[in-house]
Simulated scan of single mutants.
Amino acid sequence: MDIRAIILRQRPQLYLALRIVISAVAALALAQMLKQPLPLWAALTAVIVTQLSVGRSLKATVDYFIGTIGGAIYGGAIGIFVPHANEYAMLGAVALTVAPLAYIASIRPSFSAAPITGVLVLFIPTIAHISPLASAVDRVIEVGVGGAVGLAVSLLIFPASAHRLFVTAAAQVLAQIAQALDESLGSASDGLDTDAHNRLQDGIAQAAAQLSVVGAEAEHERAARLSAGPGTGPMLRTITRLRHDLVMLGRAVNQPLPADIAKRLQRPLTDVRTALASYLHGCGSSLLARRGPPSLNAVLSALESYDSAVSTLRRDGLTLNLSGHAAEQFFALGFALEQMRGNLNDLHRCVSEWVEADAAVARAKS
Rank of each mutant, 00 (worst) to 15 (best):
N198W: 10
L14R: 02
R225L: 15
I69V: 13
V140T: 04
G92W: 11
A259T: 12
I127P: 02
L347E: 09
E183W: 05
S184P: 02
A364C: 06
D138R: 05
V121E: 04
R251E: 12
L52D: 01
L155N: 00
L242P: 14
V272T: 05
D63Q: 06
D195I: 10
H281V: 06
A60Q: 02
P293Y: 01
A209S: 07
G118S: 02
A102L: 11
A224K: 03
C283R: 06
A207C: 14
G292N: 08
A364S: 13
L181M: 10
A357L: 05
T50W: 00
V253A: 03
E221I: 11
E221A: 10
S285R: 13
R291W: 10
Q172R: 14
P293S: 10
S295P: 05
A327M: 14
G233C: 03
A180C: 03
S366C: 09
S53Y: 02
S301D: 05
D138P: 03
I116Y: 00
T194N: 08
A89D: 12
E221C: 07
G79K: 11
Q32Y: 08
A298Y: 09
G79L: 05
P159C: 04
S352D: 13
L30E: 07
Y306K: 00
V213G: 08
D358C: 09
W41Y: 15
D138G: 07
Y279C: 05
V247T: 14
G67M: 07
A170P: 05
L318W: 15
S212D: 15
I22F: 03
L276Y: 07
Q179T: 11
I157L: 12
D307S: 01
V137D: 03
S305L: 04
I69W: 00
Q206H: 12
H129D: 15
G150F: 00
A289S: 15
L236G: 05
S184C: 07
S110Q: 12
L337T: 04
A360E: 15
R225M: 11
V173R: 09
P39V: 07
S106G: 05
D271T: 03
I127R: 07
A5T: 07
F65I: 02
S184K: 07
L28E: 06
I177A: 03
Q255P: 04
V299D: 04
D202E: 14
Q206A: 12
Q329C: 01
A196T: 09
A262N: 04
K35S: 13
Y103I: 13
Y74E: 06
A162Y: 09
Y74M: 06
G250T: 05
S286L: 06
V355T: 14
V137S: 10
Q329W: 06
A262Y: 03
S323V: 08
L320E: 09
I7R: 05
L44S: 08
Q32H: 14
S131W: 11
V173L: 11
L344F: 12
E221F: 09
P125L: 10
P125V: 13
K263W: 12
T194V: 14
A72W: 02
V214M: 01
R243P: 07
L44V: 15
E142L: 08
N321D: 14
E338K: 12
A26S: 04
A207K: 08
A31F: 12
L122F: 03
A357G: 10
S285P: 03
D195Q: 11
S323K: 07
L181N: 15
I7A: 01
V119N: 02
V143T: 01
A170K: 00
E87N: 08
V49P: 01
K59F: 09
